[in-house]
Write a protein that binds this DNA or RNA. Structure first.
Length: 198
DNA sequence: GCAGGGATTTTCT
DNA sequence: GAAAATCCCTGCG
């Protein structure tokens, strides 16, 4: 095993800004880095879902800003973290532009660094269960209300490019999960052939 | 291994 | 009052 190097440089702002479906596809392979007070955790994004600002009744922004979804209307490159079912946190990458209300839900990560901290936060036995779902990865990465509205291009929480040697997998496209409206839209993106997805 | 239900906040009807 | 971008535990095969 070669030593793991913690990524330091975030992706360019343009990668996180634009049509949410395009950003959702581009995010596959990128690394999510969180320097929390408890320690460092890093995970590779392997599954995403796009939520569009128009023509998408499943999108939280569809009915305008509220106290909960306010950060979804920030410019691309910010985090939108919200509580679902009164229990779990869901982490999104806002894709902007400011005022649009468009974002990408991150659904699964491959744990790369800080696995001991992730296990402690999650309390599970199998590493496959650490980040294989939106609520799971938010817990493992220590993401909550404090990260809602935070920049992903500077600070403690960063989206960084894949390693140069990382080989891009085939990306499967399909319907989104857990929604009742606009179920058929092909806005879910998944890396093929990994054990880390939901 | 799989189906069923509970937890608990925000929002809308 | 009910559903929601979910997860986990229980009971049963």
């Amino acid at each position: 095993m070669s030593a793991v190097r913690t990524p330091r440089r975030p992706v360019s702002a343009t990668l996180l800004r634009g049509n949410a479906a395009a950003v959702a596809r581009r995010l596959i392979g990128a690394r999510l880095v969180h320097h929390s007070p408890e320690g460092l955790t890093v995970g590779r994004i392997l599954e995403t879902e796009a939520y569009l600002s128009s023509g998408d009744p499943a999108c939280h922004a569809q009915r305008g800003p509220t106290a909960r979804n306010a950060s979804m209307f920030l410019a691309g490159g910010h985090a939108y973290v919200y509580l679902i079912y009164g229990v779990h946190q869901c982490f999104n990458v806002v894709t902007g532009p400011a005022g649009a209300g468009e974002a990408v839900l991150v659904r699964a990560l491959e744990p790369l660094e800080g696995l001991e901290l992730m296990r402690a936060r999650r309390g599970v036995t199998r590493d496959r269960d650490l980040c294989s779902g939106p609520g799971k990865l938010a817990c493992a990465m220590g993401l909550g209300p404090e990260q809602d509205g935070a920049s992903l291009l500077e600070g403690a929480l960063l989206v960084c490019p894949p390693e140069r040697h990382w080989r891009r997998p085939t990306i499967d496209v399909g319907p989104r999960v857990g929604i009742a409206k606009a179920v058929a839209l092909p806005l879910r993106f998944r890396a093929r052939g990994t054990p880390w997805c939901s």
